[in-house]
Amino acid sequence: MRYAARRRAARPGHPVASLIAATGPRALPVAAAGLAVVLLGGVRPCRGLSCGTMASGSQAVQDKGVTVTRFLTAAVDGVPQVTAPDGAAVRPLCVLPGAASFAQFSLAPEQVSRAVSHASVQEIWYVVSGSGEMWRRQDGHEEITALVPGVCLTIPLGTAFQFRGGPEGLCVVAATVPPWPDDPGEARAGQGPW
């Protein structure tokens, strides 16, 4: 079905033939209430913590005056796990170039991260499973927050933070704004309570 639809759309003179030519054989135009582009195949694995290269051709494509931006879908089990500068296990998932990235972070039972602060990004975290604690300090104010499923918190730019997993470990998802950079100086080592 996918091959036949791609073959029909690729015929010379078809209104989206130039879009397929511009986006390559992994894109399949779909006509419905407009025009969308669906990526076929898997996602390319991220290198390090940057997922800016995760979707091949994530740039906008022009076709007859219409701009179409490719979208990305990633499954947590389909991306490689890497280690964050703070020691947490990370699975970088999706990115909106220039806007934000999204990842899953986890700690083993009783694992403690290294204390860090970010040089250019801020984050919003949401606890998915497990338990733990998050320490944050900024401008003379500090607090420790219990991490349980359903808790959402922010890590504003320049905030020092450290977190630790409870007896069953900890799993959170987080949006990073702007997207995580490929800069080794992004996570600056600090002193935390643990």
Results as ranks from 00 to 15, higher is better:
residue 2 R to Q: 12
residue 5 A to K: 14
residue 5 A to N: 14
residue 5 A to R: 15
residue 7 R to N: 13
residue 7 R to G: 01
residue 9 A to N: 10
residue 16 V to Q: 06
residue 16 V to Y: 13
residue 21 A to L: 11
residue 22 A to K: 12
residue 22 A to N: 07
residue 22 A to F: 01
residue 25 P to C: 02
residue 27 A to R: 14
residue 32 A to K: 08
residue 34 G to A: 04
residue 35 L to G: 04
residue 35 L to S: 05
residue 36 A to V: 08
residue 38 V to S: 08
residue 38 V to C: 06
residue 40 L to D: 10
residue 42 G to V: 09
residue 44 R to M: 08
residue 51 C to G: 07
residue 52 G to C: 08
residue 56 S to E: 15
residue 58 S to E: 09
residue 60 A to P: 10
residue 66 V to W: 02
residue 69 T to I: 10
residue 69 T to P: 01
residue 72 L to W: 10
residue 75 A to E: 11
residue 75 A to H: 14
residue 76 V to S: 13
residue 76 V to H: 06
residue 78 G to I: 00
residue 79 V to C: 01
residue 82 V to F: 05
residue 84 A to I: 03
residue 87 G to E: 04
residue 90 V to A: 02
residue 91 R to K: 13
residue 92 P to C: 03
residue 98 G to M: 02
residue 99 A to I: 13
residue 101 S to V: 01
residue 101 S to L: 00
residue 102 F to Q: 04
residue 105 F to Q: 07
residue 106 S to K: 04
residue 110 E to A: 11
residue 110 E to L: 14
residue 110 E to D: 14
residue 113 S to A: 15
residue 118 H to I: 03
residue 121 V to E: 07
residue 122 Q to F: 09
residue 123 E to Y: 00
residue 125 W to C: 10
residue 127 V to A: 06
residue 128 V to H: 15
residue 129 S to H: 10
residue 130 G to Q: 06
residue 131 S to N: 12
residue 131 S to H: 11
residue 132 G to F: 06
residue 135 W to E: 07
residue 140 G to D: 09
residue 142 E to F: 06
residue 144 I to R: 15
residue 145 T to D: 06
residue 146 A to W: 09
residue 152 C to K: 12
residue 153 L to H: 09
residue 153 L to M: 13
residue 155 I to A: 05
residue 158 G to C: 03
residue 159 T to F: 05
residue 160 A to L: 10
residue 161 F to Y: 15
residue 165 G to D: 02
residue 167 P to Y: 03
residue 168 E to L: 08
residue 169 G to C: 03
residue 174 A to C: 14
residue 176 T to L: 06
residue 177 V to C: 12
residue 178 P to T: 00
residue 179 P to F: 00
residue 180 W to I: 12
residue 180 W to P: 00
residue 185 G to N: 14
residue 185 G to V: 04
residue 189 A to R: 15
residue 189 A to W: 09
